[in-house]
Write a protein that binds this DNA or RNA. Structure first.
Lengths: 144, 144
DNA sequence: ACCCTATCGTTGCAAATGCAACGAAGTCAA
DNA sequence: TTGACTTCGTTGCATTTGCAACGATAGGGT
């Protein structure tokens, strides 16, 4: 009779919440631009950084190399991203947002912030504490 | 120049943390018993509830019907779970832990609690606030 | 009894995923 | 230069996933 309470188990709670929150936002950009979650991540990162290699995104954004590579290819085909061989090191591919890509992120960024705010609204005063804890946990696990 | 900061975006942070935490624990039960995450969830839920249908697990545990069904089949093949047609309503399948299944959850439960504690240890005093916020967010989104 | 409809669990199938292996390109020392 | 070793991005492949059927069963109204 161990009677394990899955509902109160942290990894389970985090998985469920993360899935709900991510899918909730994914519905917005999927409907508007037809991109997937991996593609969203690549675009979002590219908007922050300049021209960047697949490898850099791979380690900064917690996605498999192949996932990044395929997302980048789809984004290129859709005209949101340009791929170009780095002339200094020809193994590297420089990814960069096109004008169309910038237009997309410009439209999506406020939607993202609004969505985030709507999720946090439930927490009220406890929101800062929650976010601080999140940062702490993420920072500690950043050893890979 | 929208310059969207993905690292500070809540859905992204939650996804990354949830993946890290879940995989960290998954490594433990995978190595010890060779079960997958969906299978772990089914077993954990069965340990808490009595004999239960696939449907009940499906809605209580945030997994697709087919995912539950396939996990249950694998668990049955491995001898951890028994499947039986409900005599009152022959559409339903009653899932129940076997003795072997109980033995597994009995061994896993303390490991799970220990793992959870090790994750939360980083937070110190802020842990209660974090967990309360988590519960709040999960409860609010429970309308499906 | 007979439909009509809803629900349950399984299965088919296309798409996504993780992982390993590959070729291309770079590095460094002999 | 050659050769051994590393790193980068892509691709092949087996597995997993989500979604939409499907057959079987149940319930309700006529």
């Amino acid at each position: 009779m161990s009677d394990f309470d899955l509902d109160a188990f942290l990894p389970y709670q985090l998985s469920v919440l993360a899935a709900q929150v991510s899918h909730g936002f994914a519905a917005l950009y999927k409907q508007r631009f037809g991109i997937t979650l991996p593609e969203w991540r690549v675009v979002a990162h590219l908007s922050h950084a300049g021209p960047v290699s697949v490898r850099e995104i791979h380690q900064r954004v917690a996605m498999d190399k192949s996932k990044v590579s395929r997302a980048a290819s789809r984004l290129e085909a859709a005209g949101y991203v340009s791929k170009r061989v780095n002339e200094g090191d020809r193994r590297l591919v420089e990814l960069e947002l096109t004008e169309k890509g910038h237009a997309m992120i410009n439209e999506l960024a406020p939607i993202a912030r609004e969505y985030e705010a709507s999720v946090l609204a439930t927490l009220g005063d406890h929101s800062p504490c929650f976010r601080a804890a999140l940062e702490t946990l993420l920072k500690e696990k950043a050893d890979d």
